[in-house]
């Protein structure tokens, strides 16, 4: 059985302040999404930039959710980079819909850039907290 996959969803942002809708699909072979990590080409474009995300029709993040809250700097250890979901979020070929809205704080020279969204897909059961 396959236990882990780090699936990438790339979103190109062309202009300052642009709002880009995107859609994708989780890998069918994995049961749930354990966590998420966002990588931006540089920290400056993170200011005010937001990510809305729905997986399988369930709202994970509202459109106004700051990307800064689900990313981290390079000094964070690889095993700590992911924002882990406490609830069970189904993968298994689920539709991913989202919107990246650029913060509009950088000039055109920083564009286009790609926001890279990494989903940590697993096949284990979610840990329950008592």
């Amino acid at each position: 059985m396959k236990n882990h996959k780090f699936q990438q969803v790339r979103v190109q942002v062309k202009d300052p302040g642009e709002s880009v809708r995107f859609s994708a699909e989780t890998d069918k072979q994995f049961a749930r999404v354990r966590g998420i990590h966002i990588s931006m080409p540089n920290d400056d474009v993170l200011v005010g930039t937001t990510l809305g995300l729905k997986i399988n029709g369930t709202e994970i993040f509202d459109d106004a959710h700051e990307m800064r809250l689900i990313t981290c700097g390079h000094q964070v250890a690889p095993n700590m980079k992911f924002f882990l979901f406490e609830e069970n979020i189904e993968a298994g070929g689920s539709a991913i819909e989202g919107r990246v809205t650029d913060g509009g704080t950088m000039d055109q020279s920083s564009f286009p850039y790609e926001a890279k969204i990494y989903l940590w897909l697993v096949n284990d059961e979610p840990k329950t907290t008592s």
Binding site: K2, K5, F6, Q7, H74, Q75, V76, A77, K116, Y118
Partner: peptide, 16 residues
Amino acid sequence: QLLINAMVGFESKVEQ
């Protein structure tokens, strides 16, 4: 098995 998609960054000094 396709398992890993990741970015590689640059660390100017080791802190951790």
